[in-house]
Design a protein around this nucleic acid. Structure first.
Length: 264
DNA sequence: CTGCTCTTTCCTGTTT
DNA sequence: TAAACAGGAAAGAGCA
């Protein structure tokens, strides 16, 4: 039976859901690459859903939830411990049984993919592609990363926003990450909250964030690999907490300040 | 110069 | 298989 998940069912849902982020998102810096590059790789003819690996099924799942702005913790990912063939054999009822009301969205998405390739996934589904990038909105200026060449002014990046007050944003990595999260409208699609109240967040474009961090530190060779090492050091200091089993997902810890809505 | 913190870099091995 | 994750080790940056 396709819905017999092999995953462990006894772990708390918010922690144990083993959803996987799209690996390839981290390797592209602009929206067109994210959409066309990723979609073409995952959903091209030679990778029909039938032929997906379990990992690719999870990638699709995560993508679809993102596109519909659905909280990843709202469905039990262990019900989708399936490869593409098993997934394609699922009926509408199987989907609703596995994911409740979200099941119908997933079913629709998969059906479209099976028959129409990429039709239901337009670039307009991506927040980054619908957000105009305004010159005056420089915070951590990602215009270069997103190919908004005309608005990019190298010397204005990361400069203090208000001359009257010293830059309140810390220079530490975790503060940098936090401040991106707190200003999503100016940093579309880089990092997103998974659980706002719990301080759980996920990197959507890990390499782009690393580039941005490198830019701040005047280090053009920064990578997510290196950035993530620094992030792991935060576990011991309880600035971050581990989120097991979920790639690119972190959680603010007891010593992280300023991320809660109430203390903004 | 010293000591300290916070990364950065590199690496080997493991997991997904 | 590629991309992430885990940490050890050591070097570097910046600051007091």
């Amino acid at each position: 039976m396709v819905l017999q998940a092999s995953g462990v069912m006894s772990i708390p849902a918010t922690v144990s859901v083993n959803n996987q982020p799209p690996a390839s998102w981290t390797t592209h810096y602009n929206c067109s690459d994210v959409t066309s590059g990723y979609m073409s790789r995952l959903w091209s003819q030679d990778l029909h859903p039938q032929n997906w690996t379990k990992y690719q099924v999870w990638e699709w799942l995560q993508q679809t939830l993102d596109m519909h702005q659905i909280d990843a913790t709202s469905i039990p990912f262990q019900n989708f411990d399936l490869d593409g063939r098993q997934l394609c054999n699922m009926s509408f009822q199987d989907f609703t049984r596995a994911a409740g009301s979200v099941g119908s969205i997933l079913f629709q998405s998969l059906t479209d993919l099976k028959w129409n390739g990429i039709t239901s996934i337009s670039s307009a589904d991506f927040p980054c592609s619908i957000l105009p990038f305004k010159e005056e909105s420089n915070f951590y200026n990602t215009s270069e990363l997103f190919d908004f060449k005309s608005s990019f002014q190298p010397n204005t990046i990361l400069s203090s926003p208000a001359p009257s007050s010293p830059d309140p944003r810390g220079t530490h990595l975790w503060e940098f990450i936090r401040d991106i999260l707190l200003n999503p409208e100016r940093n579309p699609g880089l990092i997103k909250w998974e659980d706002r109240s719990e301080g759980v967040f996920r990197f959507l474009k890990s390499e782009a964030v690393a580039q941005l961090w490198g830019k701040k530190k005047n280090n053009s060779s920064m990578t997510y690999e290196k950035l993530s090492r620094a992030m792991r050091y935060y576990y011991k200091r309880e600035i971050l907490e581990r989120v097991d089993g979920r790639r690119l997902v972190y959680k603010f810890g007891r010593n992280a300040r300023g991320w809660r809505e109430s203390e903004k």
